[in-house]
Amino acid sequence: MNGFVYLTDVVTLELDAAKCNGCRMCVVVCPHNVFGIEAKKAVILHRDFCMECGACAKNCSEGAITVKSGVGCAAGIINGLLRGTEPTCDCGEGSNCC
């Protein structure tokens, strides 16, 4: 995956290990292998692989993970700038976006 690492030291992912109950859900849902388990607690192994999709935070029943999630998409950010909203890929019916 080395050709597929994006900018380093930018992501907003935070893990509060004190709240972690070791359920492994973050390891399961992360599509980029960011998390691991050490001594029955979650740890961030590859922070720069994170794409801020928010799956880990959403599925953490203890609220131990926070991340400002959103679309990593230039068109979506331009959309947000033009409309004065948060970045959104919701550009309405019939337009070219996901």
Binding site: M1, F4, V5, Y6, L7, V10, V11, T12, P31, H32, F49, C50, M51, E52, K68, S69, G70, V71, G72, C73, A74, A75, G76, I77, I78, P87, C89, C97, C98
Partner: peptide
């Protein structure tokens, strides 16, 4: 090319925002 960040599977919102600030 910058727009392809939206199709890619590994770019983060924070990263794209940082990139766009100078690139755009």
């Amino acid at each position: 090319a910058m727009n392809f960040t939206g199709s890619s599977t590994f770019t983060s919102l924070s990263g794209v925002q940082k990139e766009m600030k100078t690139a755009l």
